[in-house]
Amino acid sequence: MTQKGLRRVLPSQRVDAIACEHVDRIFESKNRTVQALNDVTITVKKGELFGLLGPNGAGKTTLIKILTTLLLPTSGKAHVYGYDVTRDENKIRPIINMVSGGEYSGYGLLTVRENLWMFSQFYGIPGKEANQRIKTLMERLGIANMGDRKIRTLSTGERQRVSIIRAFMTEPQVVFLDEPTLGLDVETARLIRRFIQEWLEKDSERTVLLTTHYMMEADELCSRIAIINEGKIVALDTPSGLKNMVKKEISLNIEIFPEIKVDWLNNLDGVIGFNSKDAGGNLSLRVVVEHDAAVGEVLAGINQHGGKISYLNKEEPTLEDVFLKLTGRGLE
């Protein structure tokens, strides 16, 4: 496949879009050493929308930086379209692009269209073609009337749409989306999700690696999901496959008043994981337990610790339950 203005060499059709084998990344500074990635092995097929799910600091962005050639792995091998990220960065860069949620690039004095045009030039897209692509994508993402506005005057959601256009206008084969809907309103997030899905559907060779800590987003978009925690991949499957992991477990949503301490759940037999948050003086508790007997013990424990239950609901397992089971803690 060739793109006007920029020669892109794609290797054989059979290679995977992304392949990581035993990737480690260690950050060393004077005071401490942090292992951001620990033996990460994943394979993403062409045409996949692959999700990387994990809490803040789990290593998602580090992995994206390695795959986008901004960071070298400390050990292990990582390939994008068959090219080694350590040696072949010049072959990878023409076929990838990236968006980081919450980070807005460009120059404040330039308009939206000028900023986008500038970035298109870094990929060698002829001016006329670049302008056409920018126009089409701006219309598609609902900011067609904002081309002449200076980028510094845009809202968060509008800026993020510009970032999405910046990444997709170069017609990459693999797009890395690092928390692309972070801090966006529901409507803008939905628009961006729909755009990503449609973009993928147009060409079976296109691939997206998406990191998020929004469970719903991962569940809705991704064909497969890797759960990453403290730099390690702790599970990798389709969303339904992951949810099957906790099918036999029971998920309870409980509202307790007044707010009580629930540390004792850690020592309770049969409790797989729990997540609690303040709900205006009450406590909102989500618990995943192994069997029915444990349900009784949880309810009794609440009673013993002075809590009264105002609401109780048993739910179908979600990705959050999977995460609770695998890491013993909540995602958000």
């Binding site: 203005g5 920029l6 330039l110 000028e114 045009w117 870094f122 060698g124 002829p126």
Partner: peptide, 19 residues
Amino acid sequence: NVMLNLRALKGRAYPRMIG
């Protein structure tokens, strides 16, 4: 790729001139 680099050069020079 000469064309790519010339376009990139033009692309980065543009904000400076417009600015």
